[in-house]
Design a protein around this nucleic acid. Sequence first.
DNA 1: CGTCCGTTTGATCTGTGTCAATCGCTGTGG
DNA 2: CCACAGCGATTGACACAGATCAAACGGACG
Lengths: 229, 229
Amino acid sequence: MPHEGCDGCLARPLAICASIPASDTQVLEAEAGEVLLPTGATLAHEGDPRREVYTVTRGMLRRVRLLPDGRRLVAGFLMAGDFIGFSGAPHYRHTLEAVTDCMLCVFPLRSMRELCRRFPDLESGMLAQACSELDATRGSLMLLGRLGPSERLAGFLVELAERQQRRGGAAHHVDLPMTRADIADHLGLTIETVSRSFTKLRQSGAIAFEDPRRIDLVELAALRSAAGL
Amino acid sequence: MPHEGCDGCLARPLAICASIPASDTQVLEAEAGEVLLPTGATLAHEGDPRREVYTVTRGMLRRVRLLPDGRRLVAGFLMAGDFIGFSGAPHYRHTLEAVTDCMLCVFPLRSMRELCRRFPDLESGMLAQACSELDATRGSLMLLGRLGPSERLAGFLVELAERQQRRGGAAHHVDLPMTRADIADHLGLTIETVSRSFTKLRQSGAIAFEDPRRIDLVELAALRSAAGL
DNA sequence: CGTCCGTTTGATCTGTGTCAATCGCTGTGG
DNA sequence: CCACAGCGATTGACACAGATCAAACGGACG
């Protein structure tokens, strides 16, 4: 599928694409393909050879790893502007599944390398984005390693809210397109404990919600400090 | 302190420095300083402004974060060849402490940016190394999120052994310069549980040791599969 | 109207944290 | 040279947080 064009792309300002001047976007468009992914579909399987990289332009994906005995870890969620391809491995280390309907730009790995040679700023931009992702991933280590269930949930909600805010959302509000099971597997908990943590945060007045997928962060400061931020 | 020279540097082949041709190392040496850090000393504090980047040339450091109530997380260990400075934040997000006596090369952040402009291969090398670090950090997420104590320990030992092997160590052997407390705070466990996991792995025959700091990985394959690798 | 799926809530069980004691090595001072 | 203090590691007893098992609820959809 050909590419729709960078001009109207809502993800562009957040993505590595922004490192290439607007005047040169036709070079990008020439190399890029486009992928539409319906809810639940998988973009790539753990173990597949890694031949492409992607930028998410719409929707949300999850990065999943499964153990032989069925234990599941959701290593992260990807949103518009996020880059898929910061890895040194020749094979995918996670399965990538669409949490919602998604749209992505695809680049063959070799085209991306070519583009980096041609636009050194693109490589700088990628390094910068890889560094941010490292910061974020190291933050998750603290969540998983040393925080209790409600604290983990607080940290997760705050981080998601901030990412959604950068994409035009309200500061004190989070949308949760993923299920409780996804959240549990992301936070190293069970569905039940996640649910209990939601009600505990609600009873404490830190959050409020009718719809379990649309959360108001009433006491943002309290949530941040609970998560050690 | 001036720089000793890249020629004899044992860390060079493992570090980002390898991206700069041997013929140009005098440019590196001109920008670099050298730091000696005795055991227990701290290189930088969480929250300090981040003005330099480092390459570890000798010894081991730990990357620590502390919560107000005293909970501690060791986000990782740094060894010869590892780069300190993959972060988008203007301040350190972790305290860096010497586990053993250490030696490091220092570069002012601005010199590093200058070097990247001058040697595009350096920037590529940094991106590649940042990607490996992302792979490794995402691996830790699985350890912390979904594995039991003995599995976490197994994964930790295997990963350390591999890193030491790349630096000339034996495949089936690990040296642990850090204390059980460091390991516990790295794996999200208590000292006691770490100790019990060591004896459990020993009783199962997977590892063997007299000295608690020098471990033989007797059943490397079993350890790898326990860790989900 | 009934089924299905995601979420919430309740009851019980278990693994890991907590508290406490012991071991063994190292280094120090009598 | 030996006694002892101090620290890291190990082992044991117990408690409790979170997992597991089980049930009920509510909205979406046929």
